[in-house]
């Protein structure tokens, strides 16, 4: 059997195991909260009848393990149960919003990843030049500000002063792709600025790390152009650390959008999560946590697998 397949399978199993542990933690954490969910939800004025009805409705009377299993079974098929706040099915509540969040993250990533990798390569090529320093310092400045601050600055410049882009990203199911891209440009740019620096700096550092190696010197001594040495000889060997930083940042894009969504009034998961937390809507919080956790684990899994594939020693064994 190809060893790489074996490694990938092993990683996949570990990823699934991690995800399962996360489901246990999410479920147990809510169970272990002090007090009884029904009394918490219905308050002091609750009658024994209404409490019993609440317990019946949310299936709180069965033993914990049984409830966990049916919750897990539902979650796997996309059914997260019903909201405690408004009794509607959670999948209906968060379905479109999850898609919106992933769209925005994907949009930001499509901008950020190419920009980060290319500018990282340029910074390595012109290492220690004015260009390198300006790039390094400006991206560092961008991550030093909180995201809502960047969001407001962008709104001030591009929306209030220049009037090029709308300050509200109010999309719905019927919004076309072109309009959607236009309306969400500012939030995507905000996210882009936040994640750009890490990815760019890692690309630069990973490439610079390799430049003293004999095979890079060899490429120079073969009379290869400097840009080609960086892009063709250094980059493929620097991929593993770059991939893992990109994956980490993509996961952040999905999990960390809450504030940016609120600033731009974008109908994503963030807004739902904020509402659910303030309403103590436990079942929705569980569902959102599970989606975030799964995203993190899957992206990191993907990064692991890609890093393995990027290593020719593993891909082409002796």
């Amino acid at each position: 059997m190809n060893p790489i397949l074996l490694i990938v399978l092993k990683r996949l199993m570990i990823g699934l195991l991690t995800l399962w542990i996360v489901t246990v933690i999410i479920f147990a954490a809510v169970e272990l909260l002090p007090g009884d969910i029904a009394t918490e939800k219905l308050g002091q004025a609750a009658t024994p009848e209404s409490l019993a009805a609440f317990r019946e409705k949310f299936d709180l009377n069965r033993p914990m393990v049984e409830r966990y299993l049916s919750w897990l079974g539902g979650a796997v098929t996309g059914d997260f149960g019903i909201s405690m706040a408004n009794q509607r099915p959670i999948s209906e509540l968060i379905g479109v919003r999850t898609a919106n969040t992933f769209f925005l993250a994907g949009y930001a990533a499509a901008l950020a990843v190419p920009i980060a990798v290319v500018s990282g390569m340029l910074a390595a090529l012109y290492n220690r030049s004015v260009f390198d320093r300006v790039l390094s310092n400006s991206t560092l400045a961008a991550i030093s500000f909180p995201e809502f601050f960047i969001a407001y600055i962008l709104i001030l410049i591009f929306s209030v002063w220049l009037g090029w882009f709308p300050s509200l990203a109010n999309v719905d199911v019927d919004t076309g792709l072109g309009e959607r891209l236009y309306k969400t440009f500012l939030p995507a740019m905000t996210l882009n600025l936040i994640v750009l620096a890490y990815m760019m700096r890692m690309t630069r550092a990973a490439i610079l790390n390799l430049l003293a190696l004999p095979y890079i010197e060899m490429a120079h001594l073969k009379g290869i152009k400097r840009w080609r040495v960086i892009a063709v000889h250094a980059l493929p060997n620097a991929l593993a650390p770059i991939i893992s930083v990109i994956a980490l940042n993509l996961a952040y894009l999905i999990v960390g959008v809450v504030l940016v969504e609120v600033v731009f009034v974008y109908p994503g998961l963030g807004q739902v999560l904020v509402d659910a937390v303030s309403n103590r809507d436990v079942t929705v919080v569980q569902a959102a946590c599970l989606i975030f956790a799964a995203t993190y684990i899957l992206l990191n899994l993907l990064a692991d697998v890609l890093s393995i594939i990027a290593n020719p020693r593993l891909l082409h064994p002796r």
Binding site: P214, Y215, M218, N237, R313
Partner: peptide, 10 residues
């Protein structure tokens, strides 16, 4: 060292 002077990726 030819092992170090050949690019491992190609």
């Amino acid at each position: 060292s030819a092992a170090a002077a050949f690019n491992p990726a190609f």
